[in-house]
């Protein structure tokens, strides 16, 4: 294995690791946060854990209006009430 192969391996490894982290944070922010928590417990400094596993600024949902899947806006959930039967 020559120097170029080492270089190639390192670059590809970095790109793949960055892509994995990015995809995890964007598509599964809660799972990423859990991994971050585990990393903190394992001794990773807070700043590093937030950098790698923190919530994304905005997830790439495509609309630009939803704050992504990250910090939620105040949701207005639906409450259905069973209709009362008339006697």
């Amino acid at each position: 294995m020559n120097t170029y192969h080492f270089f190639e391996l390192a670059v590809v490894g970095l790109i793949v690791a960055a892509s994995t982290l990015f995809s995890l944070r964007q598509t599964m922010p809660k799972a990423a946060a859990r991994v971050g928590e585990l990393a903190r417990r394992g001794g990773m400094p807070d700043r590093l854990a937030s950098f790698f596993f923190g919530a994304p600024k905005a997830a790439d949902c495509g609309c630009g209006q939803c704050s992504g899947c990250g910090p939620a806006q105040s949701s207005q959930t639906i409450t259905l009430h069973r209709s009362k039967s008339c006697h």
Binding site: T27, A59, C61, C66, C69, Q76, T77
Partner: peptide, 15 residues
């Protein structure tokens, strides 16, 4: 096929 849409359905429906 869009996880973000499913997440928003969950958030808005609350169910």
């Amino acid at each position: 096929q869009c996880l973000a849409t499913i997440a928003v359905v969950r958030r808005e429906s609350g169910s």
